[in-house]
Nucleic acid binder design. Sequence first.
DNA 1: TTGGCTCGATAACATGGGTTTTGTCGGAGA
DNA 2: TCTCCGACAAAACCCATGTTATCGAGCCAA
Lengths: 224, 224
Amino acid sequence: MSAADRALVAALPFKVRTIEPSTYMLREGQHPTRCAFIIEGLAYRQKLTPDGEREIVSIIMPGEFADLQNLFLEESDHDIQALTRLTLADIPISALRELVTSCRAAGEALWIDALIESSIHREWLLNIGRRNARSRLAHLLCEFSVRFRTSAGADMAYELPMTQEQLGDALGLTPVHVNRVLKSLETDGLIARKKRQVSVIDWPRLRDAAEFNERYLHLAQNRS
Amino acid sequence: MSAADRALVAALPFKVRTIEPSTYMLREGQHPTRCAFIIEGLAYRQKLTPDGEREIVSIIMPGEFADLQNLFLEESDHDIQALTRLTLADIPISALRELVTSCRAAGEALWIDALIESSIHREWLLNIGRRNARSRLAHLLCEFSVRFRTSAGADMAYELPMTQEQLGDALGLTPVHVNRVLKSLETDGLIARKKRQVSVIDWPRLRDAAEFNERYLHLAQNRS
DNA sequence: TTGGCTCGATAACATGGGTTTTGTCGGAGA
DNA sequence: TCTCCGACAAAACCCATGTTATCGAGCCAA
């Protein structure tokens, strides 16, 4: 990125704020005018069926934009909610859109972000559509492990910041069954748990159980 | 779109070709140098598990680009295969990338395309993760109905160009169960079938069974 | 005509995961 | 200290969907 580009990015107006777990950052149907860049903490996107069933369709990690779709789409098609306490930078959409069209490097970086998210969606479709509960959960744990490491430099053990109900909503399972499967992964020695702290004990076996292949994360292009 | 923009688009180098059903346009892991614009016919994206199970993660319709992700991602994360006989325009990725960064209107149009596809992925996640087989299938039929109409101006009846096995692969179901559910939708009077011709008989009831809400298709922004 | 292929229909049976319920545990507050 | 509440745990039961198998229709090539 050139010096001129850096200057453009640095000139972006923004406002840092902190929000509490489970507060809504965006609701389906809204027409937002600002876009949030996650500095610390986790958020998730969810969609609801009319009878109140929830599907968590993605997890948003530090260093990512929470709602790139609203750069060019007018009406939000899903909710975004804070998973943990969150600090974020609010940027006016108009300024970000201007940046995308005027600065090639920044535009490319945002394109890559958006395309990687799409790729993750596709992998989740495969996961939910074609794998059983055990592989699904193992896959999610593998993905978290890798994404945490690249976004926070953490170790193979990490604090899993989701309740079993939320895990179920991300996997298309009931909390009861998530519980069963977590226990079985633990007694089989693939993972260890202490409260919500999940550690990967046997990465090769967990990866095999998950059929995990990190290609879909496009890690080589993930930092820019 | 201004006259100058139009000239830029018109100046794109391209090559029209026709391909037969089920030929691969792209395979996972490849590094393509050209991008296909679908002129006529249908294609689909699929992902495979190591043991050969398939999930169809999206259907690509006329007027859409088949592999926008490869504009900025180096390695493809899924396969693209022709569903019907297909005529398409091959465009060098370098030219398309140049267009995106030099022509604001074209760049915006491609952004919108990519973001809508992401939105459809999210809706499919909700569909597969949280709806039962009947709603899932009804939802897919509703989506096809709407998208065909906007892309081909067709009526509420359309030629469903997928085998029951392919439908199952798109919905995370077995072909046997797809057959059961199709039959039940037919005997309940929601749809009619004659060979692969599917007609929507009772749109309100089908839409209700599917919990279908077309917001996620962002139709207002779909033509540009 | 024959044979081989794919697709769809249907039946009998098996099971993964859902549902319901009841209980335990630990932290937050009074 | 006590109570309240949310998350986790575990057992019993059941149903939606998967599995396996068979058959026929349609199509195409030899």
